[in-house]
Amino acid sequence: MFAGQTAKTLPWMPDDACIARVEGLARTHRAAVHEVLSPVVAAWHPKFRVESAAEFDKMIELSTKMTLVGHACAEVVGAPFGAREQRIAALYGGCCFLADSFIDNFGDAASRDYLRRFDELFLSGWFEVRTDRERLFYVLAARLFAERDMLEPMVRQATLKLHAAQSLDALLRIDPWRTTDLTATQRRALFKRVARDRGGHTILLLTVLVAPRLAPGLVAGLFSAGSLFMYIDDHGDFFTDRRDGRSTYMNLLRRPEPALHRIVTAHFLTILAKLPGNEGRDALLAILARYYFTRIDKHRVQEQGGGTAWDVYE
């Protein structure tokens, strides 16, 4: 059992050995993520760690989650996960964190401008570095490029699909008029698809970054796992997203908790059906189960007006 676990049951639950393994991996990967990202921050944006300490910690946590999930995905695919893959996953986590921050934290005009500049980066390779934070992002991306052939067709496609899903997500927030003509049902369907694609493409890109080849039979199971991360994430951020004027599928629902439980159950069944039973699949499900239970708790804490427990694996 996980600490704080609710009475809910899932189609699959990790045993104690699996939980212990994932917790051990989380500790190892957190230390490794620090070793990968801290020197880059120290070299290129030292103020980030000092003046935005909470954000720096969040970046480490997100990267740790990426590395942990990347490790599980590599095991699902049957690929080794060594120091190089650890670096790739940590760099990818850092890039995702900073890219999200550019799009979410600096106002609508900045969001639009960043979306345009990311388009340009992917189309031409050019990215004019204007701030220390942008320099940190660019250096992390350059290191990622140095580690992995970004022109491999699946890597390119996964990158663009993720970018497209994130752009749509951001534009729906910036431009509320885009959804004003939709019925409530259509809105929910749209936002559900946005979450599905953001999460699904995030994990597909992570997998093709850390593994040399992704067999077609594994795509749907991994995509499902990635989507589920996003639904759980959005449930945890239900209140902060509403406060920030950001619609998500979860915060459009009147009774999100039972809906999320149905989603988790359905996705677990898909993952069990689509991925072969091995250590990687079990780790992935254990991470999801843990994430689900901690985020249910986070939602409740926020509902009661308490603090925001961000740490997921501590």
Partner: peptide, 24 residues
């Protein structure tokens, strides 16, 4: 014009096959 182009939407647009990632 381009230093490196990650964007391969043009290639994708003419690809003869499509793989549905959600349903496999």
């Amino acid at each position: 014009d381009a230093l490196v182009r990650i964007d391969n939407r043009a290639d994708e647009a003419i690809a003869p096959f499509q793989f549905d990632a959600a349903r496999g």
